[in-house]
Amino acid sequence: MMKRAQRLLPVVDMAQEAEREAAAKLSQYQQALQHAQEQLQNLQQYRDDYQQQWIDKGQTGVSGQWLMNYQRFLSQLEVAIEQQEKSLAWHEHNLSGSQKIWQQAYARLEGLRKLVQRYREDAQKAADKQEQKLLDEMAQRLMAQQTRRN
């Protein structure tokens, strides 16, 4: 019975390695997502600051050239923000997929660990039962020997 548990140990080791790799990948995707979120926030903050410049300068009056440059740059910022939002969505998708892969790997590992534990418990019960049987047989022999002597 214990041999069944021993035979599964390499499979458990492989499942553990797969779970570790999935967890590492998940961590990488979480970091990439966080970085993408920070970049988006920075771009949005930069745009907000730039728009505040417009408000400040607009009160004192601006030239047509300044206004055209402002609008062109603001348009470029909006494109950059849209691209970063798409990048963020892509990172969120990757993270979601990675979470599912890790959850499956973790569940498989836990299932294998429980199976090995059950095999060990079954083997221990069988060994205990065998030992009790031997003790009972020895007790019967002793009693039979003592009854013959008397």
Rank of each mutant, 00 (worst) to 15 (best):
residue 92 E to P: 04
residue 16 Q to C: 04
residue 19 E to K: 03
residue 27 S to Y: 11
residue 99 Q to R: 13
residue 118 R to Q: 06
residue 57 K to V: 11
residue 146 Q to S: 10
residue 9 L to H: 08
residue 19 E to D: 15
residue 81 I to D: 00
residue 115 L to W: 01
residue 43 L to G: 08
residue 129 K to A: 05
residue 26 L to Q: 03
residue 75 S to H: 02
residue 23 A to N: 11
residue 61 G to Q: 03
residue 15 A to F: 07
residue 75 S to Y: 00
residue 16 Q to T: 11
residue 39 Q to Y: 05
residue 95 L to H: 12
residue 39 Q to L: 09
residue 31 Q to K: 13
residue 75 S to L: 02
residue 15 A to R: 01
residue 79 V to T: 05
residue 96 S to T: 11
residue 42 N to G: 10
residue 53 Q to A: 12
residue 16 Q to L: 05
residue 12 V to I: 14
residue 18 A to Q: 10
residue 57 K to D: 15
residue 13 D to S: 13
residue 149 R to L: 15
residue 141 R to D: 13
residue 141 R to S: 12
residue 46 Y to N: 06
residue 126 A to T: 03
residue 144 A to S: 15
residue 137 E to Q: 12
residue 140 Q to R: 15
residue 37 Q to K: 04
residue 45 Q to Y: 11
residue 147 T to G: 03
residue 86 K to D: 09
residue 100 K to M: 08
residue 34 Q to R: 15
residue 142 L to S: 09
residue 18 A to V: 07
residue 146 Q to L: 14
residue 11 V to M: 09
residue 94 N to S: 07
residue 72 R to N: 03
residue 48 D to H: 01
residue 45 Q to M: 07
residue 37 Q to T: 11
residue 64 G to D: 12
residue 50 Y to V: 13
residue 83 Q to I: 00
residue 147 T to H: 04
residue 78 E to P: 07
residue 105 A to E: 04
residue 5 A to G: 06
residue 144 A to W: 03
residue 65 Q to G: 08
residue 130 Q to V: 04
residue 46 Y to C: 09
residue 44 Q to K: 10
residue 79 V to S: 08
residue 91 H to W: 11
residue 143 M to R: 06
residue 52 Q to M: 07
residue 87 S to D: 06
residue 124 Q to A: 13
residue 98 S to I: 01
residue 97 G to D: 12
residue 81 I to K: 05
residue 37 Q to E: 15
residue 43 L to A: 01
residue 61 G to M: 02
residue 29 Y to P: 01
residue 53 Q to R: 14
residue 101 I to R: 14
residue 12 V to R: 07
residue 90 W to I: 03
residue 87 S to L: 07
residue 41 Q to H: 08
residue 120 R to P: 03
residue 110 E to W: 00
residue 64 G to W: 04
residue 45 Q to P: 06
residue 65 Q to Y: 11
residue 115 L to A: 05
residue 132 Q to W: 06
residue 75 S to P: 02
residue 126 A to P: 03
residue 58 G to K: 12
residue 142 L to Y: 04
residue 88 L to W: 02
residue 74 L to C: 04
residue 4 R to S: 11
residue 50 Y to Q: 05
residue 120 R to N: 02
residue 92 E to Y: 05
residue 59 Q to H: 12
residue 4 R to P: 02
residue 88 L to R: 06
residue 82 E to D: 15
residue 28 Q to Y: 08
residue 139 A to C: 03
residue 2 M to F: 00
residue 122 D to S: 05
residue 127 A to R: 10
residue 118 R to N: 12
residue 41 Q to T: 14
residue 99 Q to M: 09
residue 137 E to A: 13
residue 84 Q to E: 03
residue 129 K to N: 13
residue 116 V to Y: 00
residue 67 L to N: 14
residue 75 S to C: 02
residue 78 E to M: 01
